[in-house]
Amino acid sequence: MDKLKKFLTYLFLSVAAVVSIFPFLWMISSATNKSVDVTKGKLMPGAFLGENLKKVLDTIDIGPALWNSAKISVTTTIIALLIASLAGYGFEIFRSKAKDRIFSILLLSMMIPFAAIMVPLYRMFGGISKVIPAIGIDTMTAVILPSVTTAFLIFFFRQNTKMFPKDMLEAGRIDGLNELGIFFRIYVPTMKTTYAAAAIITFMSSWNNYLWPLVVLQSPEKRTIPLLISNLGSSYAPDYGVIMLVILIATLPTAIVFFLMQKHFVAGMTGSVK
């Protein structure tokens, strides 16, 4: 009976694993096939990886797009982590009724979809462009600014701060640290795993962000990777082998970031303080 149970469990898990990993494998094998083979549904890896790679390097400006995406994602992640952790820390450590109310309003803003605020946001940046063109429409800063802090991230840090032992604050104060010192020297090192989890979440969403960069970036040389991929699929006869290869390349950075921080990520999601 136990054996049967175990067998069924593994069977179910194997099926689930195949279902979730199959598209990924297909993408990889498609990157090594000709477009015609991809459309015919060929699943096995082919011999066209070199040819596809040559086409990508010859015809697509993938380097600058990767660099743009990297600049935007890394900057966004660093600033967002700093702001959101300070805010989450403040909301939890220095609690008051008024702050709790502000926090619930902040949480409400999570319910508003981005599409709803996109037009006013664009209008705002249009206005900014007239005064300070360097941070207006068609600049990297315009992509970064709206996403440097999200209600979700503040919420995430606040929840995790609940588990932060308050005694350590007292200890820090007795030892003569000022409040900022406590934050940077005690809180930040203790919450490393939370930071890692938040970094992965922010980096991934920033790397994959499509809608806002699409409307705010105009010059082709500022394009990010998702915009580049969208373009590749736009022609009347898209080359699927090449597209899959570009997508594969675009997936690598997020995969690397994830695998590097995987251990911390799991710990951060399940509660960080030991």
């Binding site: 600049k71 800063t141 010059s219 500022k222």
Partner: peptide, 15 residues
């Protein structure tokens, strides 16, 4: 941010 602002000044081509 220095990188990004540099390229901002450099190419205002889309507008």
């Amino acid at each position: 941010s220095a990188c990004s602002s540099k390229s901002d000044n450099g190419g205002n081509k889309g507008g």
